[in-house]
């Protein structure tokens, strides 16, 4: 089963990455897909954990893709995260239109690789929508107004695999681990400002969410089942036109007794050699994950690697 999944992930992602790369191969006014690729390097952002245009962990108020306000852009991504005892692979595609609206789809495949729950797998699908409300991160250099977007991410948890192997025979749904629901929607507001004269990008977001571990452990729980309002932030320095170096932080609710969920943060380097390719290398720390359930309370940190191809 996991081999099939891994194969599917590789095939789907390579197809999308290939199409993205090929489509962008032209320096003329428009590429093969009619996109003008008219935005500045780096201003499409990367894909955050849930697939929205952002850094690696936190969405930015950028619309994904390199299409200008008269055009469109799209990209596909594959991300691999290996923490001490957990592994998350995500892949998906995102489309940005008119530098105004963004749609994204991302699949999460999560596997436990250590602790007594070794072998357990969880997957989920995430659909994202983002709309630019006001401001322009690039042009409004003469004002303090950031670019502001509102976004929604609908998560549908597909359940738990190999629970018997991990000593949880009969467990197939996250609701059996204490979650109130297997699906949920995050709503966020993100404000991003490029301080171009200082080569800095600053981003702040707030998210209404009841997701447990990004939805991998469902939504709501025995401790709290209603929405929490969680702040998030990004700061990045642009040492060259193609590089962003920075850090992100994201607070999260703690809804489940079984999970010592806490603030997640990372430091990252993002490299965009062309408008058709981006690579992100980060070090991600989620804090404790499932500590009360497994007895393993150490911080779960590790490398985060992501590739994005598109236009």
């Amino acid at each position: 089963m996991e081999y099939f999944r891994a194969l599917r992930a590789v095939v789907v992602t390579s197809c999308f990455l290939g199409v993205g790369l090929l489509g962008g191969q032209t320096a003329a006014a428009e590429n093969l897909f009619g996109s003008d690729e008219g935005k500045f390097l780096l201003t499409a952002g990367f894909n955050d954990l849930e697939g929205s245009g952002g850094g690696g962990l936190v969405p930015l108020a950028f619309i994904t893709g390199y299409g200008s306000s008269d055009s469109w852009g799209a990209n596909a991504h594959f991300t691999s995260i290996q923490l001490k005892d957990f592994q998350l692979r995500t892949y998906g595609a995102a489309v940005g239109a008119l530098d105004r609206v963004e749609l994204s789809y991302t699949r999460h495949e999560f596997n436990v690789t250590g602790t007594p729950l070794d072998g357990l797998g969880v997957s989920q699908d995430i659909l994202g929508l983002k709309i630019k409300l006001l401001g322009d991160a690039v042009y409004d250099q003469d004002s303090w107004l950031p670019q502001i977007c509102v976004g929604a991410e609908y998560h549908k948890n597909d359940g738990i695999d190999h629970a018997a192997q991990a000593g949880l025979a009969g467990v197939t749904r996250v609701t059996q681990l204490g979650a109130s629901a297997a699906h949920g929607t995050d709503i966020y507001l993100a404000a991003t400002k490029i301080f171009l004269a200082e080569s800095l990008v600053v981003n702040a977001a707030v998210r209404a969410t009841r997701a447990n571990e990004f939805g991998l452990l469902g939504f709501g729980g025995d401790r709290k089942s209603s929405d929490s309002y969680e702040p998030e932030g990004t700061i990045a320095w642009l040492p060259t036109r193609r590089l962003a170096v920075g850090s992100e932080i994201r607070t999260r609710p703690r809804n489940l007794t079984l999970d010592d969920e806490s603030t997640a943060y990372d430091v990252f380097v993002g490299w965009t050699p062309t408008k058709n390719l981006s690579l992100v290398a980060a070090w991600l720390n989620l804090g404790g994950v499932l500590g009360p359930a497994t007895g393993v309370t150490r911080h779960q940190d590790g490398p985060y690697l992501s590739i994005q191809a598109g236009f």
Partner: peptide, 17 residues
């Protein structure tokens, strides 16, 4: 240097309006 380039482009960017 890029950091000085950005200081110039930051002055030009609002001309978009």
């Amino acid at each position: 240097p890029y950091r000085l380039q950005n200081k110039v482009v930051a002055m030009l960017a609002p001309m978009q309006h």
